[in-house]
Nucleic acid binder design. Structure first.
Length: 568
DNA sequence: GCCGTTTTCGGCCCGACTGTTTTCAGTCG
């Protein structure tokens, strides 16, 4: 089990209790437990196995038992009871941003609103605006957010889906029914969000693989199945499908199921232009002879193409590039030398400067840039900044063959000023500027705000540029073309933030940025030693965007990295 | 519901923001 699963459940319990108007301190206890679980730096299964749950802050007998119940039986009586006793649909209401338990309760009590549709209707016809705690503005916000919540339903973070897919793959492999199992679909393409998991498996008897698949413990319900295919619902809400084929058909089916559709049809068009027919079962040439391919690269090769990495298979010209052999050499994790944008206990990080640096050293990196928040997001200010600076220099001196740089993640305020004075920023090695508030400004205001911050001579990197949170918060409304022009003009790099919920700047903007000459930094936005590894998600995003190591500043050695910011 | 005890119950994090208010409540991180 993932700690996040339990954290999510405690969030839900807290919101449901709040809706029912129960003891606020009990509610806070569940919130605290959820936070503790999210900050966990080791697998929760280990804590359960070693009976150490109650050692965690905020987790006592009752909550520990609920975690154990969830992990072992998947059923937590309190949670089940709250869900069954709460009007259907209210749970959905609580997911609408801006609509907390209090307002949801008021809407339910006065207008009997118990579903997203009812909420939308009341917001549209003006009745919601008359409920205490609402107003015209609130109604408008709700109206917009309901549609978003509905659009997000049934979607999952790509990073989470990928973990589930890997687990399923391993379980299916263990059954011995399949010789090969690979997770395909959006998870393999490293899509930011996915609707379902797609597995492709090969074996002598495909039907036996399907049997094994539908029998896995994680399968909640079989939706549809036949001898070579099955679609199921997993516990936890994700859908999954399996394509079971012979070993001969495997590379072709894997290719088709990795997608996307545009990529696949482009491949079929290439085959067609050569008098061949490409299907999920194989390639047949003009003479009607099947061409055997042992693996996916062999299929591309048979079509006269260079191999296209799964991340790039989005139907955006990569097949044409494969024809002419002009696919870029995509950046790899091994290219990264420095870990930029790391938080510590000086703001909301969970580990000291020393612990973070050592974690980076263990992973083979050569330098780290500590970027705690500025004062308006709870980071150091005034003398504290100097103290932190001293601590960073101390650690820098203590470590061998590694550099620790002093940076900051300053807040971009509403008007585009930063939350630290220029004199303080001038002392730092690297300044990341990012937006953490006022997400709803108009396009003009927001763009002006961004451009003003970018123009500050001390800003080196624009952090999580759109502020989006996948499946939760839309990107800010900015004129991206103007922002990209501004970062080029002021020699500011764009961050590719590797947090699974952010993945910001998203890959669709990478090419327009690249064409303007933008440089990037791939950063984990780490808040603890483990999350340094969020770099892998940033790398995946950059690869989707078609970026090479040359486009990424933190592939440079530390001297060159510093020099890249010597514009000041 | 958790925690730290002055061991058997009383106190529990907080600041920013937003919108609804006319001095504040709800939400969010």
């Amino acid at each position: 089990m993932h700690a996040e699963d339990a954290a999510q459940m405690f969030d839900d319990i807290a919101r449901l209790l709040e809706f029912r108007g129960e003891n606020p301190f009990k509610i806070r206890a569940y919130d605290n437990a959820a936070r503790t679980l999210r900050e966990l730096d080791e697998p929760i299964d280990a804590l359960i196995a070693e009976d150490r749950l109650e050692d965690l802050p905020g987790i006592g007998t009752a909550i520990a038992q609920k975690i154990i119940d969830l992990a072992t039986t998947g059923c937590v009586p309190l949670y089940e009871r709250l869900i069954s006793e709460t009007p259907i649909g209210v749970v959905d209401l609580l997911r609408v941003p801006g609509l907390g338990p209090k307002r949801a309760r008021a809407a339910y009590d006065t207008l009997g609103i118990d579903s997203l549709d009812a909420l939308k209707e009341a917001a549209a016809d003006g009745s919601l605006a008359r409920v205490a705690g609402f107003g015209d503005k609130m109604s408008t916000t709700v109206l917009a957010n309901v549609d978003r919540v509905k659009a997000y339903a049934g979607q999952f973070l790509g990073v989470e889906a990928r973990e589930v897919a890997e687990l399923l793959t391993a379980r299916l492999q263990e059954t011995d029914a399949a010789s090969t199992v690979v997770a395909a679909g959006g998870a393999r393409r490293r899509a930011e969000t996915v609707r379902r998991i797609v597995l492709v498996a090969a074996g002598k008897q495909p039907a036996a693989i399907v049997d094994a698949f539908v029998g896995l413990a994680a399968v909640h319900q079989v939706v549809e199945r036949n001898a070579g295919w099955a679609r199921v619902q997993l516990t936890g809400g994700l859908g999954a499908e399996l394509h079971a084929v012979t070993e001969r058909a495997f590379p072709f089916t894997l290719l088709e199921q990795t997608g996307n559709t545009t990529h696949w049809t482009a491949l079929q068009a290439v085959a067609d232009s050569q008098g061949q027919v490409l299907t999920s079962q194989g390639i047949v040439d003009a003479n009607g002879t099947s061409i055997d391919c042992g693996d996916e690269p062999a299929v591309y090769s048979a079509l006269g193409l260079s191999w296209v990495p799964p991340e790039a298979r989005e139907g955006r010209g990569e097949v044409d590039a494969a024809v002419t052999g002009t696919l870029p050499e995509l950046v790899r994790l091994g290219d990264i030398k420095g870990v930029v944008h790391c938080h510590t206990t000086w703001s909301d990080g969970r580990a000291s400067v020393d612990a973070m640096a050592r974690a980076a050293i263990e992973r083979g990196y050569k330098y780290m840039v500590i970027c705690d928040h500025g004062p308006s997001s709870g980071g150091p200010n005034g003398d504290e900044l100097l103290e932190q600076r001293e601590e960073i220099e101390e650690v820098d001196r203590a470590v061998v063959d590694f550099n620790v740089l002093a940076g900051i993640e300053v807040d971009i305020l509403k008007d585009g000023r930063l939350d630290l004075p220029d004199a303080a920023l001038a002392e730092l090695d690297c300044v990341v500027a990012a937006v953490h508030s006022h997400f709803g400004l108009s396009r003009d205001e927001q763009t002006e705000r961004y451009c003003r911050a970018i123009a500050n001579p001390h800003v080196d990197i624009l952090g999580h540029p759109t502020g989006r949170q996948l499946l939760a918060r839309s990107p800010v409304d900015i004129d991206m073309a103007r922002v990209l022009d501004a970062v080029v003009e002021h020699k500011v790099a764009i961050e590719i933030n590797g947090q699974p919920k952010r993945l910001d700047l998203g890959w669709r903007w990478h090419r327009p940025a690249l064409e303007r000459g933008v440089k990037f930094v791939i950063a984990p936005d780490a808040h603890g030693p483990e999350t340094i590894d969020y770099l892998v998600h940033g790398i995946a995003m950059a690869r989707k965007g078609g970026l090479t190591g040359n486009d990424i500043l933190n592939t440079l050695p530390v001297e060159a990295f510093r020099a890249a910011f010597k514009k000041r």
